[in-house]
């Protein structure tokens, strides 16, 4: 077993691994017991596993551990905010009740938080385009768009 240190949610952590090709998703979920990032496809097609690496929204299911350096800042849904102290985007999702099963919502929040950091006042079409590669099976799209709009209005 090899060891590697990572910066996750502002803390330095050490992870043991056999295979440097192990996707970051499994490091976060299984080694670090975080479950904001979710397994949806493992193929980079759905967005359920999205995390931030240095502020950019990244698909952790197709990001091998070897590609993440200890200096890079990995942030998961848990690192964004908590139920008691939610991030503005998380708060907007609560206010709009923009969740059905919620399995896709990690990706929706992480993707839109990264997007809003760059584009503070997006149009509805821009929001939809920014989320075009995040899939939701429950049909929560309309509420999710409203939540992102609400978050942008408050930013």
């Amino acid at each position: 077993m090899a060891k590697k240190s990572l910066t996750v949610n502002g803390k330095r952590v050490s992870v043991s691994y056999d295979d440097p090709q192990m996707p970051l998703l499994y490091v976060l979920r299984d080694n670090l017991d975080l479950h904001g990032p979710r397994f949806g496809c493992g193929l980079g097609q759905c967005g359920a596993c999205t995390v931030h690496i240095d502020g950019a929204a990244v698909r952790s299911c197709v990001t091998p551990l070897s590609a993440v350096s200890s200096k890079q800042k990995v942030v998961t849904l848990e690192g964004l905010g908590t139920a008691q102290k939610p991030h503005p985007v998380q708060k907007a999702f609560i206010d709009e009740q923009a969740v059905q099963c919620g399995y896709c919502i990690n990706g929706m929040i992480m993707q839109s938080a990264a997007f809003l950091a760059k584009n503070k006042k997006p149009s509805e079409a821009e929001i939809k385009a920014a989320l075009a590669n995040n899939l939701c099976r429950c049909g929560t799209h309309a509420r999710i768009v409203r939540a992102v709009k609400r978050a942008s209005a408050q930013a």
Partner: peptide, 14 residues
């Protein structure tokens, strides 16, 4: 269930 689901504390089967 929504506050837990949007902050990662909700426990799904997975």
């Amino acid at each position: 269930d929504i506050p837990g689901k949007v902050t990662g504390s909700f426990v799904y089967m997975q």
